[in-house]
Design a binder for these strands. Structure first.
Lengths: 205, 205
DNA sequence: GTCTATATTCAGATAGAC
DNA sequence: GTCTATCTGAATATAGAC
């Protein structure tokens, strides 16, 4: 019906606004008024659609976490050549974050400060599959002699670190290296290649 | 005089408490009441010593930033063998963070959310010296043929990423790899060696 | 310098008209 | 469903006694 579409439209406006504000300011920093302004409505309507601030936040938070990780896992689970897999995952992961630069800090922050928001469950479902597959890959390559006997856990952490951290530390990096916005962006584009080759150089036999 | 020491004692109690609370909860999340409780005094006294919450926060924040970076720079500026320098800096940097695990997220957070708090000036003084020296080192090694022609900027970012990020992402890592507190701690101890060798393997000729 | 009590401000949440 | 107006609670900040 007509009402249905209007409903969805308003709800969507709220979700869009909440996403933007929460991701920038976090749970504590965000104001319901900010979200209402951003959505072009008033506070009362926010509470009409989502009873409390926490409820609204949890919706955005889970959606956000769900957006980041599946792509990571999809590539890890594919069956392409191991080095290409590394190139793919690094490149596409950095690409995602380039277009959502505030997401990582947002997720890390809220996972540290609000461990209760049910993310734990979210991870525990898919985790074992991915990690297991990644370890299998590495063992296969080791026995083929294409790579050294590296620790899968450390390799995974190194990869994640080099992809994600620069965005989290953007202000520090820009000051230390004296970069402006465009130069930072260019550096991140370079990293799609640089990081992958850095890893491959380190582990290849 | 006796008064002087009493003053200093109370002020120090406040600073200790503020450090603890701010580092755990950030500027927004921290409550003056929390700090007062932690210090064993009442709110009014906080405002007597430091007029506002922001003033108190800025004090802690600058102190914190100042605590993290000098060690980084001291080693970079020393004149030991390049590979040993990498081993030293990785190891001692991870060591610092092991004993102050909340500092990185705190600093990164507040630099992203409150760029005004005068850190910019803090960095701009020392930055050029360190970066310049680090680039010199790399060029020297490249011309000696001991390492490949790598980008100093990317190398520096990679090093920082692999040292710092795991602590920021601790909840994620613990879930993904199914670690408990002790296992995480052990993994970080391992990383003092692992990360340095990972880097050296990648860049050595 | 340190406290208790209070003022002020602000954000989340609700009531009720339309 | 959407708005205006209002309540309630919490947190920063101040006044004033000791």
């Amino acid at each position: 019906m007509v009402n249905k579409e209007k409903d969805k439209s308003t709800e969507e406006k709220i979700l869009d606004a909440a996403r933007k504000v929460f991701v920038q300011k976090g749970l504590d920093g965000a104001r319901m008024q900010d979200i209402a302004d951003e959505a072009g409505i008033n506070k009362a309507l926010l509470h009409y659609y989502f009873r409390t601030k926490d409820k609204l936040f949890e919706m955005i938070f889970l959606e956000t976490v769900g957006k980041i990780f599946p792509r990571f896992e999809m590539i890890l689970l594919s069956d392409m050549d191991f080095f290409d897999k590394i190139r793919q995952i690094v490149s596409s992961y950095i690409e995602v974050i380039i277009h959502n630069p505030y997401l990582p800090l947002f997720v890390l922050n809220e996972m540290n400060k609000n461990p209760e928001f049910g993310i734990v469950d979210f991870f525990k479902v898919q985790r074992p599959v991915v990690i297991h597959r990644f370890m299998e890959d590495i063992e296969k390559e080791v026995s083929k002699g294409t790579i050294k006997a590296v620790s899968p856990a450390h390799l995974l952490v190194n990869m994640m670190s080099m992809c994600i951290f620069p965005f989290v530390a953007k202000p520090v990096i820009n000051i230390m290296l004296d970069l402006d916005e465009l130069q930072f962006r260019n550096m991140m584009e370079q990293r799609k290649r640089v990081v992958a080759e850095f890893i491959i150089e380190s582990i290849k036999n």
